[in-house]
Design a binder for these strands. Structure first.
Lengths: 113, 113
DNA sequence: CTCATATATTAGAATATTATCATATTTTAA
DNA sequence: TTAAAATATGATAATATTCTAATATATGAG
């Protein structure tokens, strides 16, 4: 299991709409920068910046194919995380059972919002 | 499925070691602020700030029990995401099969790193 | 070799996040 | 009603993130 700091870092890196879309695309297959540029409709330099960030954190890598840089997924947790994100969930978890006791609290009754 | 922006936002909110630990604790059961303060060993005001952020994004809620605020999980995706984060994975995904073709690229051979 | 294509890098401004510290609020107990 | 406990809020400084624009680099074609 990766250490806590690395878990948080991973989520922070994923927590950007452009990077999420890039990773989603890469789960479908290898893509070069200009594929992604066209798909994302943002400036090429910005695409490159996001790709370079994703690579710095070890989530993706690339190989050269002619003059194209072909990016692909490297971190196996990505597809699983994306899958969970796309699942449908009931609105809310059921509220905790009546009067659970926290470590500190022993207060009876008078429970309200 | 929640919209892309909301997905990214969710991950960004999760992407902090303190908030990850708070959520992890809350998957085990209801906790009041001072429980968390003791567990996290950071200033109470900082705990409250993280809790308030988590609540603003609808991930947790609380009820009052005497003078304690008892926080609990509300968003059902949280346990699933935490579970994936804790799974063990092989080092890397297998590299893409030989010579995949990107949308743009049709280049043969000369593939290298 | 030179050029065009594909992509990366850098600098900078705008904005967002975070922790700290001080203070305020709320609630129960005395 | 006052005090103490539990928790929240606000201001601020430090830091990090993000996008834009301009420029640099690398590669294959001719």
């Amino acid at each position: 299991m990766r250490p806590l700091g690395a878990q948080a870092e991973l989520l922070r890196v994923l927590g950007h709409p452009v990077r999420l879309q890039i990773l989603e695309e890469l789960t479908k297959g290898v893509k070069c920068v200009s594929d992604l540029e066209e798909f994302l409709e943002i400036p090429q330099s910005n695409v490159s910046q996001h790709l370079s960030l994703l690579r710095r954190y070890g989530l993706i890598d690339y190989y050269m194919d002619g003059r194209l840089r072909c990016y692909y997924l490297v971190d196996p947790i990505i597809p699983d995380l994306l899958h969970v994100l796309k699942r449908d969930y009931p609105e809310q978890l059921p509220p905790p059972a009546c009067c659970p006791v926290t470590k500190k609290g022993r207060y009876p009754g008078k429970r309200r919002h």
